[in-house]
């Protein structure tokens, strides 16, 4: 099985990359590790005539305590993880497997194309079954009579950055802008984030605040490596004077967008009475759009996410 032919462009700066994307008038995609995009391209899914490689842009591979370039590989994030909040390298270790992590990048994981058993299929399968709206077809196959695509966003790192209150630095023809992680994603499997055409995720920024949390990430997957999450839960707890003052919980892989719930101060105290996990789950559940389009049933995925929240809170608050 071979890749469809494409023109590869190798810019050296973010500005060059953006102006290239602008001049190619929409028939281009940015590529970094290629572990998602090229695999799909082999199946003739979302192909582009032009690929703009980010691998020659040094600025996007830089990493410091408060900034992670989008082209930093996930393996690199793990290797230099001690300067970052420990949640990041812990989560990164659960992404794919060791070989893939050497190519796959932080940006690629944050912009992972939604995955669905009806979308991630061969040409033969799509020809036999009919293609879905995210491929070359018109309708969703997983859910009857819907306008929306339910392919779940399956990146692990998004949940970690959400609870760490990260910000995404974007650059595009209109200039730079900073978007908080919690405003970046859109619950639509085809356009799952706010990036405009020719806009590029340049780096992720962290604030000092991110280092004040005790965090954990748990991932539901059939096997203990390689698999994408069927549900991912990140939990962060900030303690002030030995008491929890802020709780942040993020979910991934339970819908086209990851989601975040936050409890602070008074809300937190009130929620304790009702049950923290229940309160958080109630906040999160409107954005959980898990349907039957992955390995495990949607009921099981939701249940496990709910259980993970409970178990992680129990250990982090202990």
């Amino acid at each position: 099985m071979s890749l469809p032919s494409f023109q590869l462009h190798m810019p050296h700066t973010v500005d060059q990359a953006i102006s290239l994307a602008g001049s190619l008038k929409g028939d281009s995609a940015f590529v970094a590790g290629g572990t998602d995009l090229l695999v799909n391209a082999k199946e003739q899914l979302n192909c582009h005539k032009n690929l703009i490689s980010l691998s020659g842009i040094g600025a996007m591979k830089e990493m410091s305590r408060f900034s992670i370039g989008a082209a930093v590989t996930i393996a690199e994030l793990i290797r230099k993880g001690e300067i970052l909040p420990p949640l990041l390298s812990k989560t990164a270790r659960m992404v794919a497997g060791p070989a893939l992590r050497e190519s796959a990048t932080v940006g690629g994981n944050l912009l992972l194309n939604g995955r669905c058993v009806y979308f991630n299929q061969s040409k033969l399968y799509r020809c036999s079954h009919g293609a879905c709206m995210k491929a070359e077809g018109k309708a969703c196959i997983a859910v009857a009579q819907t306008e929306r695509c339910y392919a779940p966003f399956s990146g692990d790192l998004a949940a970690a950055f959400l609870v760490l209150n990260a910000e995404f630095e974007l650059a595009g023809p209109e200039g730079e802008r900073i978007v908080p992680a919690c405003e970046f994603y859109v619950n639509d499997g085809i356009h799952a984030n706010v990036l405009n055409s020719a806009e590029l995720l340049v780096r992720v920024r962290l604030s000092e605040d991110a280092f004040d949390f005790n965090c954990d990430y748990r991932k539901l997957r059939p096997r203990s490596s390689i698999d994408f999450p069927e549900a991912g839960v990140a939990v962060a707890v900030k303690k002030t004077n030995e008491r929890a003052s802020e709780l942040r919980v993020a979910l991934t892989a339970l819908g086209p967008a990851p989601s975040l719930a936050v409890l602070r101060d008074d809300q937190l105290e009130q929620a304790k009475a009702r049950g923290l996990a229940d309160t958080l789950w109630k906040q999160l559940s409107p954005s959980v759009l898990a349907v039957r389009n992955t390995s495990f049933s949607p009921t099981y995925r939701r249940e496990m996410a709910r259980l993970f929240i409970e178990q992680m809170l129990e250990s982090l608050l202990a």
Binding site: G97, V117, N120, Q121, S122, Y125, S128, H129, P222, R223, S224, S225, I226, D227, F228, S295
Partner: peptide
């Protein structure tokens, strides 16, 4: 533990090593 070919309408829905869950050395 995990392996099965999933058929629907005669098609194999998981004809790849990411979707067909052969266990890994870590398992």
């Amino acid at each position: 533990l995990s392996e099965q070919l999933q058929f629907e309408g005669g098609r194999i829905a998981n004809a790849s090593f990411i979707d067909y869950k052969m266990i890994l050395p870590t398992d």
